[in-house]
Design a protein around this nucleic acid. Structure first.
Length: 231
DNA sequence: CCCTGATTCGC
DNA sequence: GCGAATCAGG
């Protein structure tokens, strides 16, 4: 297997979605965990909470020798002592007081909302999944929109004749994806939307998770697809 | 031991 | 560019 456009996109989506390299490899199939990691790095994605990261200590008693396995190059003792490597390390100082840009809200993904907005939220009611339901004249979504990822056009297939295809989407029907893109039966929910949301009431509950108190957060943000079947 | 991601390096 | 082998932390 090669890294096609689609496989690469899937890798990127899953990687950024927090899936482990093993999970991604399993999902993609025909690739090893190492392949996934290697590809991810080549793509520029990198560094999600990794176990081996604390490679920084004031006192570094472990300079990490040369565990070269193959073609161990000779130390090459140069005749010249090569002294005075003066400006070796300027000690990069990345400006600790990095000022936050005025606005850079991650508009998608499991946004970890922080500020609890102390002012009264004017909540009308709360939906099944804990999302905030709004009144008609109150059209400011309290939660960043567009949780779902990209919509992939499903091939015209007779098996989905009765299903809601990409072309059937409108502002009135639930856009929640059912199944995985590319699969023959991939379609959309199609139920009547919860007013003010792109999804029906049921899927609003999945798309908009209630902001739980710190410490009681559930790790796996339920993505529309990309992992084990969600339906 | 298991898991994880990071890195290297021959291909 | 790819990924097995290896390293290294939890």
């Amino acid at each position: 297997m090669s890294w096609t456009e689609e496989r690469t996109a899937t890798l990127k989506r899953l990687w950024e979605g927090g899936a482990t390299a093993t999970e991604i490899a399993k999902e993609l199939g025909d690739v090893s965990r190492n392949a996934v990691i290697g590809k991810a790095h080549r793509l520029g994605l990198k560094s999600r909470p990794s176990p081996v990261k604390a490679a920084e200590k004031k006192a570094a008693p472990k300079p990490k020798p040369a565990p070269k396995k193959k073609a161990a190059p000779a130390p090459a003792p140069s005749p010249t002592p090569a002294p005075a490597p003066v400006a070796a390390r300027p000690a990069p100082k990345p400006t600790p007081a990095a000022p936050r840009e005025p606005a850079a809200p991650a508009a998608e993904g499991p946004a970890q909302n922080s500020a609890p907005a102390s002012t009264s939220p004017r909540i009308v009611s709360v939906g099944p999944g804990g999302f905030l339901r709004q009144g008609p004249g109150d059209q400011q979504p309290p939660i960043p929109p567009a949780p779902p990822r990209r919509l992939v056009p499903a091939k015209p297939d007779p098996s989905i004749a009765d299903k809601t295809s990409l072309l059937d989407l409108s502002d009135k029907v639930c856009r929640w994806p059912m199944g995985h893109p590319g699969e023959p039966d991939f379609h959309f929910c199609g139920e009547a939307v919860n007013p003010g949301f792109p999804y029906c009431v049921e899927h609003c509950g999945r798309a908009y998770q209630a902001q739980l108190p710190r410490g009681s957060r559930r790790p796996p943000p339920p993505l529309p697809y990309g992992g084990p079947r969600v339906r």
